[in-house]
Design a protein around this nucleic acid. Structure first.
Length: 292
DNA sequence: CAACCGTGGCT
DNA sequence: TAGCCAAGGTT
């Protein structure tokens, strides 16, 4: 490993000029707002998150406010952000923060990891971006930047905390504030310049230090498997159709209305049992369904 | 650990 | 068009 300082310094100074003006970077943004934004940003693009985030924080400005609402309200307000379990988990977070942490989003990583739907990335993102503490943050952007610039590989390998966290730690500046800006800068670099497809290497602030560039931009040799199975006709799509009907209706919905929206009864049955098991749906009788 | 979990925009 | 991809987490 070469001296990480020139690399880290270049990323931090680039970030000072290139950072996007995003809601969660506003002065005075709360730790709760950071937690909500990180949940929404789990696999959902920034541009689609921003309007939902503003709505959520206006409606539920504190964990206690969300905890006082039915979980179904959170699922409905999630709208089409996708992966609606995140809305359920976020509501459960609000309850846990209110009951176990006095209504204050915890600051230490182990406490954050104890919250539902909070994993290695989200826990450290909150500790770093909301509280300014010094931890390595590793998301998909950072793994790709490290793979290319440091390891000379065309793409990131599968996520692996045993390898990813030490790799980021080795690059992390000493001071809390520089470390936080480096974490954010690495994510921004991966999002804006060192992108998965068509990276903008001519605009890259660390091109001169990049191992991938030095190696002549080798391409991946192994064929990549599809990132997702086909969506059309899938059970995943079926769950979305069912929840879409429920979100659109202020009242509980009879099974017949769901059959109209999803005539394939086997697929509908799998969607309903799955959603019930996940707690995204409740049913009092055999044929009337509602959000929790 | 591979598979699963939504949705929509881009190429 | 069909596949790729987006600030992951859970099982």
């Amino acid at each position: 490993m070469p001296d990480p300082t020139p690399f880290s310094t270049a990323v931090v100074s680039w970030f000072a000029t290139a950072a996007r003006d995003l809601p969660w970077r506003r002065p005075g943004f709360t730790a709760w707002g950071t937690l909500v934004s990180e949940f929404m940003l789990q696999q959902t693009p920034v541009v689609r998150v921003i309007p939902r985030l503003e709505e959520w924080l206006t409606r539920w400005p504190t964990p206690a406010a969300l905890a006082a609402a039915p979980a179904g309200d959170a699922v409905r307000a999630w709208q089409s952000l996708g992966y609606p379990r995140r809305a359920l988990n976020l509501h459960a977070c609000a309850v846990a923060i209110t009951t176990r942490f006095g209504g204050v989003v915890p600051r230490d990583v182990p406490s954050l990891l104890s919250l539902p739907g909070v994993g290695d990335y989200t826990a450290r993102a909150v500790a770093v971006f909301a509280y300014g503490d010094r931890h390595p943050v590793v998301d998909t952007n950072i793994r790709r930047v490290i793979a290319r610039a440091i390891e000379g590989a065309p793409d990131a390998a599968a996520p692996n905390a045993r390898r990813d966290l030490p790799a980021m730690t080795a690059l992390l500046p000493e001071s809390d504030s520089s470390a936080a800006r480096f974490n954010a800068g690495m994510m921004e670099l991966g999002a804006l310049v060192c992108t998965a497809r068509a990276p903008r290497c001519d605009e890259c602030p660390v091109a001169g230090l990049c191992a991938w560039r030095a190696a002549g931009y080798p391409e991946s040799s192994v064929a990549r498997r599809p990132v997702q199975k086909k969506y059309e006709g899938s059970d995943r799509q079926a769950r979305g159709i069912v929840l879409g009907v429920l979100r659109a209706s202020p009242d509980p919905v009879p099974h017949a209305a769901l059959s109209d929206a999803l005539p394939d009864s086997a697929r509908l049955g799998r969607a309903l049992s799955g959603l019930l098991a996940d707690g995204l749906l409740i049913t009092d009788s055999d044929d009337v369904y509602a959000l929790p």
